[in-house]
Amino acid sequence: MRFLTLMEKLRVPLMIFPAVALICVLFFGGLTVGLGQSLGYFPAIGSYNLTFQYYSDVLTDSTFFESLWLTFRLALLSTVSSSVLAIGIAMVLRQSFKGSRFFTFMFQLSIPIPHLVAAAGIVLLVSQSGLTARIAYALGLINVPRDFPVMVFDRPGIAIQLTYLWKEVPFIGVVVLAVLQGVGPQYEEIARTLGANAWQRFRYVLLPLIMPGVLSTSIIVFAYVFSSYEIPLLLGVRYPTTLPVLAFKNYQDPDLSLRPQAMAMSIILTVIAVLLLVIYKRLAKYAVNS
């Protein structure tokens, strides 16, 4: 009997222990080592003295802030536009019509496709000599490639954002669809009988229902874009580049003394990501409640 209650007590800790242990060792362990290096504790190059030098190096460098701003702007724009488009498409797809299963499948198509493949596809489509430009040439809209709008290797990062849109709209959309499927038609019916028009039904009935789902998937999307490496590396301008690219470039520099700086950047990136999450959750709570 005693044994059973002990088992009962240990049940939850035993269930969560493996996952928590792995994440703590791998993720928080890695983070701690990174924090140590960013503070100058780097035995591999014989450096043991703790210092904030690397943080002040990073924080006084304008390159860092340009990268931070670019990373933030790309993440924010991709997230907002993905969310809006996803809601729009989900509203269409939730209706039942002939072929809706086919269209839902097409909508989901890009979810499993690796980002690298998506990036290659987008370049082939929208570069100044890409397929769209060639169609424009065939139609007589442009004469030479440079007449075509610049979307790849550009400062605004249009191709980068298109890649994320193509990947993330379905991701958010599928979650919204799932929520809408759970809602059923009765709420709207009631609203309709109360005389609400289509916009009002969407704004006051459906939107509040799907908002929590949209908000938390958009956090995931934001975090994903915020931490992306390959896409800005392949499709972006060389300067300024995103923070993960910048940090990794410093990390991989044969000059090992740049490592602590790379780590300081990463730690700042981590703090910003967590802070943004906290602020976002606050705002989301406020938005959903009101």
């Binding site: 440079r146 400062r155 060389r238 300067y239």
Partner: peptide
Amino acid sequence: WRAGETYPE
């Protein structure tokens, strides 16, 4: 190219 706004790989 690109008015020097960026340089390619």
